[in-house]
Design a binder for these strands. Structure first.
Lengths: 335, 335
DNA sequence: ACGAGCTATGTAACTAGTTACATGCTATGC
DNA sequence: GCATAGCATGTAACTAGTTACATAGCTCGT
């Protein structure tokens, strides 16, 4: 019942543990010995202990990923990018979900550190920063996603451009008065609003933390602004709630009000909802690459958003601006 | 730059490593010594190596979860259940996604074994079975989700009941001729069709592996069966494709055709789609509990589905059957 | 036939911790 | 005042591997 160790294999094959290790990891061994060892491995069902390997290597071969909210399609695609690079590199991905709870963020990052992950990719709030910074100082490559943090690698979206993309499209569709729903006043959200404002000065913002607040915010926006002809949602998390509130209020999209939001999702095409998409998969790949091929100086990689035009903003009457470039643009280190 | 070890802490505090270990893990130590040790821990930014701890314990404190397809809401809620139990137990969850690729399933399970996870929860196809069985024999609790495998723990849905639930509701809504879309001929899918057939003999099945095939299958079903008045989708993965194909063909739901599918999802309520829901969160909890509090004999736990009635099947004209019980029903071990 | 040189293997030290056992020290009982 | 108990701490062996170094055994050249 006890698990077979390298010692058991060595005893069964009649060799030393050093020889078994050499057979498994490819050192110089004779064919006859190798055959004996493999027979013993199969006979015992031996599987080498990766933990012990890692302790000797000083570091696990696992990449840690701490996600705020797995239910968001954004993170799903990000993970796919990370997975792809990790698989090509032979690393395992250890995923931790924090459900947007501050204490879990800190706990997950600490746990990843104790697991001696080879690198860490975090998409959390500030709660995780102090520990992540210590890890970075200890030589674990750490990448922050969706936020820029001085002195650490970061992967983010050009949020101002995202807002400008929305403004350009809404203007092209003949809209002039936009209500904006943001999820809290986090920097990324504010930058998106800032970008939208640059293109459309008559922007009315409202903030919501959850679905109920979002519905209320939509109602308030509509009530206080009779000439409102568009609603922009800055957080994919609130898309369903805002869209539901809009249709529930009896308005027709896009005839009465245009609607667009952040991040693509499986139903968007079917529902005809225009969205600003982030190159999420690429962002995940880049994050993992910063872990797999460590870079000394902190890199702040900014990606450009693109617009997936569907029908929820109506017809484009004026020519729209060129589609944005999806390739990453390195803007250099931050400090 | 090198990471602080317990030896470094011991040297700085002027005590032995045994004492440091006792301070950290709560053995008998004097207050003065403990204070010195904690000061050294803070000064060095020491974080204990969980890998080393695990090798001594013979087993990591991590629970491995191998998921076929993270993009499915079913698995998302399952993971939440696992996370909840793991967090309460102080265990980390190590998540691996296989993207429905057979070779990755086997590789992920092998990797989890090498990481000496405390227990394994798999939602994969058969590719992972042989290795999982070996792990179970070696004393690692393994739980298979959504399939029953002789000799191993399994968590599954009463799929026949799910089909019957659909049949009862469709009948109550006055429908008589149902087209069914299944994703391949996997056992779970077939059981659902079997349940549906029991209640509605006039059931026409069609199978699809992906979105394009699903659209084609819907078209074929409609073309060959002019009096078809309902479409049931047996796989949440095909929901969007089937729904899109239905509306694209100009049919109105529920006036021309009723539509229902498996598993709830964020847009279902907004779109008025009736679904059969699995108690996913509870299933995840139960799976994790089988790992955390190991059970000797293989347990086959079957959960009951429930119906979330919305508007996509029309009005209920006859009284529907009672809502199903959501609590788990242990049916005993399989062998 | 004998030493050089090479290959295959074993020995033992090492990774970063835990823990059984031994020991030193103080406090208490008689 | 001395034996004894009990707490705090150190020593060393242990976990499951890896790897530097030593050595055994064989081949080959002369």
């Amino acid at each position: 019942m006890r698990r077979a160790t390298i010692g058991d294999v060595a005893a069964r094959a009649g060799v030393s543990t050093a020889t078994v290790s050499r057979v498994i990891n490819g050192g110089v061994v004779s064919g006859a010995t190798a055959a004996k060892v493999w027979a013993a491995v199969d006979g015992l069902g031996y599987s080498p202990n990766a933990l012990t390997k890692s302790i000797f290597a000083g570091r696990a071969s696992t990449i840690g990923v701490v996600i705020r909210d797995l239910s968001s399609p954004f993170y799903l695609d990000l993970i796919r990018g990370v997975d792809e690079v990790a698989a090509a590199d032979g690393s395992l991905v250890m995923l931790g979900n924090t459900y947007r709870m501050h204490d879990r963020e800190a706990a997950q990052v600490r746990a990843m550190d104790e697991q001696r992950v080879r690198g860490l990719i975090v998409t959390t709030g500030e709660a995780a920063d102090p520990h992540a910074r210590r890890m970075a100082e200890n030589g674990t490559p750490c990448v922050i996603v969706s936020r820029t943090v001085p002195g650490m690698h970061s992967i983010s979206l050009d949020n101002v451009a995202a807002g400008q993309l929305m403004a350009a499209h809404l203007t092209a569709c003949g809209r002039s008065s936009v209500g904006v729903i943001t999820a809290g006043d986090r920097p990324a959200q504010n930058e998106r609003v800032e970008g939208l404002r640059r293109g459309m000065p008559g922007t009315v913002p409202a903030s919501a933390e959850n679905d109920a607040e979002a519905a209320a915010a939509v109602g308030a926006l509509l009530a206080s602004n009779p000439k409102l002809d568009a609603i922009a949602c800055m957080s994919s998390r609130l898309t369903v709630a805002v869209h539901t509130a809009l249709t529930a209020s009896g308005l027709s999209i896009p005839d009465d009000v245009a609607f667009l939001t952040m991040d693509d999702f499986p139903w968007a095409a079917a529902l005809g909802i225009t969205v600003v998409v982030q190159p999420t998969y690429e962002m995940g790949r880049k994050a993992a690459e910063l872990v797999v091929d460590p870079v000394d100086e902190p890199a702040a990689v900014v990606f450009e958003p693109a617009l997936a035009v569907r029908t929820s903003c109506g017809e484009v009457s004026a020519p729209d601006r060129e589609p944005a470039d999806l390739s990453p643009r390195r803007t250099g280190h931050t400090e």
